[in-house]
Simulated scan of single mutants.
Amino acid sequence: MNTNRFKPTARFVPSASIRNAGSAGIRKIVQVAVPGLCLLLTACGGNMEDPKIELNPHPKMRYAITVAMENAPGPFDSLTAQGQFEIENKECAPKQATSGLHVTPFGRLPIQLTRSADGRYQGEFYMDGLKDENYFGRDVCHWTLVAISVRAVEKTTTFDAPLYKERLLQDGWDRRFFSNTTYQNTPKGMIDTGSKTKEGLPDPGASFSIYISAKDRSHD
Rank of each mutant, 00 (worst) to 15 (best):
T80G: 05
Q122W: 05
W143L: 07
S179G: 00
N47H: 10
G119R: 02
H102F: 08
G107R: 12
A161S: 04
G123N: 06
P51K: 07
G22P: 14
F76D: 03
K215S: 03
N56I: 06
M48Y: 13
G194N: 07
G129K: 11
S15N: 11
D220H: 06
D118G: 12
A43N: 13
L163T: 01
Y135N: 03
A24V: 11
T193H: 05
K90R: 09
N71A: 15
R151Q: 11
G119H: 07
R138A: 07
K198R: 15
P75R: 08
F208M: 04
L37W: 01
E166C: 02
A43V: 09
P51S: 11
R151W: 03
T98G: 00
C141H: 02
G129E: 08
T182G: 05
A117D: 14
R115V: 13
P187C: 02
M48S: 13
K131T: 03
A161V: 00
S116A: 13
T42M: 04
R19Q: 15
V146Y: 01
T186K: 11
F136V: 06
N134T: 07
R115K: 15
A147F: 04
T182D: 02
Y126G: 12
L79W: 00
I111C: 03
D139T: 13
I29L: 14
N89V: 09
V34W: 03
N89C: 05
